[in-house]
């Protein structure tokens, strides 16, 4: 037995309510992140990622409260991302009970935030989220660039080089989302997943595009990812976490059963 590959359900939360809906049998309140996190915990999820999409400042207080409640009831690692701008934001989320904090745009605006927060809180709790889009070179050589604002705004930054730079600055993990695949259900963009997992020593979570259980297997075996993140296939009850793990185990991947 060796280290298990992780399955991470992701909750998108707006002002303390799960959006994109959840359709579980037996859930009383499909919008309650605490109840849904507890359900994933019972199903054997290896971690939970909580993506805060709350736009308003006032709504952020609700987020902190929700994180506190999840941490009180769920005894697996919890990552919180979305709207993290400063060392103070990171401290607030860690104190609320998050185990890791994921930094995206703020790392691009201020790469030293990653170094400062890793020195302060330890690399183990600093996840750098990368939203990558394929922008091939003129000669057709594959290349991926980082985009912000939900994939609308190019930054000119090469995704693979950025991942290496973030690892050097103390990131403990990379959360890689393919903006070409996110929401498509066509599977992970395996090219960029493999390029980044090969380029860095830290663990990489593949995200964006999962539509079936073979996609999870591909992310691990072909993409080389250490963990796979998915939202909708779990939320709508298409597949449960135990089904996903059984499928991966049958394909020779070590999982926590």
């Amino acid at each position: 037995m060796s280290l298990a590959k992780r399955i991470i359900p992701c909750l998108d939360v707006d002002c303390g309510r799960v959006v994109k809906g959840v359709n579980f049998v037996g859930i009383r309140d499909a919008g309650d992140p605490v109840e849904i996190a507890m359900r994933y915990n019972e199903q054997g999820a290896d971690e939970i990622t909580f993506l805060d999409i709350t736009a308003s400042h006032e709504g952020r207080d609700t987020t902190v409260h929700t994180v506190e409640q999840i941490a009180e009831h769920v005894f697996i690692p919890l990552t919180v991302g979305g709207g993290i701008r400063s060392v103070e934001d990171i401290r607030t989320m860690l104190n609320a009970g998050a185990d890791k904090v994921s930094i995206n745009t703020a790392a691009i605006n201020n790469p030293d935030l990653v170094r400062e927060s890793a020195e302060r809180f330890g690399s183990q709790c600093i996840v750098v989220a990368i939203d990558a889009k394929r922008v091939d070179d003129v000669d057709g050589k594959p290349r991926w660039e980082i985009f912000t604002h939900g994939g609308r705004k190019p930054t000119g930054i090469d995704a693979v080089e950025w991942a290496q730079k973030m690892a050097d600055r103390g990131a403990g993990e990379i959360l890689l989302t393919s903006m070409d695949r996110d929401g498509t259900k066509n599977g992970f963009e395996l090219g960029v997943t493999r390029a980044i997992t090969d380029a860095v020593e830290i663990p990489v979570i593949a995200s964006g595009g999962v539509g079936n259980l073979d996609h999870l297997v591909d992310g691990i075996i072909e993409g080389g990812a250490d963990a796979v993140l998915a939202a909708s296939i779990f939320h709508f009850g298409e597949y449960s976490v135990p089904e996903a793990k059984a499928h991966m185990a049958a394909r020779g991947i070590e999982v926590r059963l």
């Binding site: 060796s2 280290l3 290896d46 020593e201 830290i202 663990p203 250490d226 963990a227 926590r256």
Partner: peptide, 17 residues
């Protein structure tokens, strides 16, 4: 790397036996 020569990431992060 592990006994089979597979590269292992550091930190050791996740569920191990």
């Amino acid at each position: 790397s592990d006994a089979e020569g597979n590269r292992l990431k550091v930190p050791h992060m996740g569920w191990n036996a």
